[in-house]
Design a protein around this nucleic acid. Structure first.
Length: 212
DNA sequence: AACACGATGGACT
DNA sequence: GTCCATCGTGTTA
């Protein structure tokens, strides 16, 4: 009952994992962050997914087992943090987009994250706060010295809407409401694009995962 | 080998 | 709302 999320937590559909990660904590050393916004990248057939063209050197971690990291550089300067989900060979992941600071704020500041009353908002800033680097890819989230995911308190309500920055995707994928955020927090990017509730996929039994 | 562009963020109008 | 830094990756030839 350590509170550490087991690999089986991540071995489910990315959208379910995304929903259940809200309220959980990402911890690295002194820094503890409560997850408030995530995006699911599903497979197969999700044309917003980095895996849409099949295996490549960059997306190799996504094809591996669930519960490993996929950190990639975006726009030549931001390191975005994902956790691989689903089955090995599936090619799905959840992107961390925003967090509240639970502890270790000084660490985040020392890494150059600007102070924001809301928390750390935006995937580039979350990666920066964690000190994330693409070399983290392939590493299990439970590895000593690495980052950890811990159980927290699920938000009372969840909001959902289209993912950000995926205009290149097919319309159905571009519009799919696979960005999820906790209600009742301001640590969320572009909250106005979100509507109350979960996507239809999750309407029943989405909290089916239980393990203490 | 060339080239277009991105799962962003900050500054600015 | 607009602009753009910055560079690795993937596609195309």
């Amino acid at each position: 009952m350590s509170g550490l999320l087991p690999a089986s937590f991540f071995s489910r559909d990315a959208l379910q994992v995304a929903a259940d990660l809200l309220g959980a904590e990402v911890v690295r050393g002194e820094l503890a962050l409560r997850i408030t916004e995530v995006e699911a990248y599903r497979s197969p057939g999700d044309t917003a997914n980095h895996c849409r063209f099949g295996p490549t050197p960059r997306n190799a971690p996504m094809w591996g087992p669930a519960g490993r990291l996929y950190v990639y550089r975006c726009y030549g300067l931001h390191n975005l943090v994902n956790v691989v989900t689903g089955s090995e060979g599936e090619g799905a992941a959840v992107l961390l987009r925003a967090v509240e600071i639970v502890g270790g704020e000084a660490v985040a500041r020392a890494r150059g994250v600007p102070l924001d009353r809301r928390g750390i908002v935006g995937p580039g800033l979350v990666g920066r706060a964690l000190g994330a680097d693409p070399s983290w890819s392939h590493h299990p989230v439970v590895e000593p010295g690495g980052i950890e995911f811990r159980r927290g308190h699920p938000p009372p309500q969840v909001r959902s809407g289209p993912r950000i920055g995926v205009d290149y995707a097919a319309p159905a994928d571009r519009d799919a409401p696979w960005r999820l955020a906790s209600a009742g927090t301001r640590a969320v990017s572009r909250p106005r694009a979100l509507h109350p509730g979960l996507p239809g996929d999750l309407e029943s039994g989405w909290r089916g995962f239980t393990s203490s």
